[in-house]
Amino acid sequence: MNREHVLQVLNTIYEKIFNEGQADLYPGFVSGPYIQHNPLFPDGLDDILGYIKQAGRIPCEVKRIAIDGDLAFVHVRYLEWAGQETAGVDIFRFDANGKIVEHWDVLQPVPKTANNANTMF
């Protein structure tokens, strides 16, 4: 897997698809069968693509990316996810052709106060 290609795909997902609302770009980065681990979505591209299109823009800031073999981990600050600021980690598995074939995510609302001075980002 080409690291530069993966970084380019991830940059496009977060900048063009999420921040700018260009959902129609997403299918070009995915290969089937697309395995989805978020329990709100079935496997396949149709439902997740429908959600991204319906949402329009999903404003976010990528805080860090780690790549390990065929997996890419993205720590994201979603500025407004379901009406609130949310910390997220997306995990993508890429095939040998550089296409996304599997996705996991973990999402946590950012609380108004914390018991420490650290941020979630």
Rank of each mutant, 00 (worst) to 15 (best):
G21C: 06
D24I: 01
E61V: 12
E102G: 03
F41N: 05
D90W: 02
V30W: 06
T86M: 05
H5Y: 04
G98N: 11
A117K: 13
V74P: 00
I65T: 14
I67D: 07
N97K: 15
S31K: 12
Q108E: 09
E85V: 11
D24K: 13
E102C: 03
G88A: 14
Y14M: 03
T86K: 05
A114V: 10
Y14D: 02
L40R: 13
E102R: 03
L10H: 01
L25Y: 11
Q36A: 08
F41S: 05
R77E: 12
Q54M: 09
M1F: 09
R93G: 09
G28S: 12
D46A: 14
Q54D: 08
G56Q: 07
H5F: 05
K99S: 07
I17W: 03
G28R: 06
E85A: 14
W104H: 02
E4R: 10
P59S: 04
N97T: 14
A96N: 13
L107M: 12
D43N: 15
L45M: 12
V6D: 04
P59D: 03
Q8E: 15
P39G: 01
L71T: 00
A87H: 07
P109S: 09
D47I: 07
Y14T: 01
G32C: 04
H37E: 02
L7D: 11
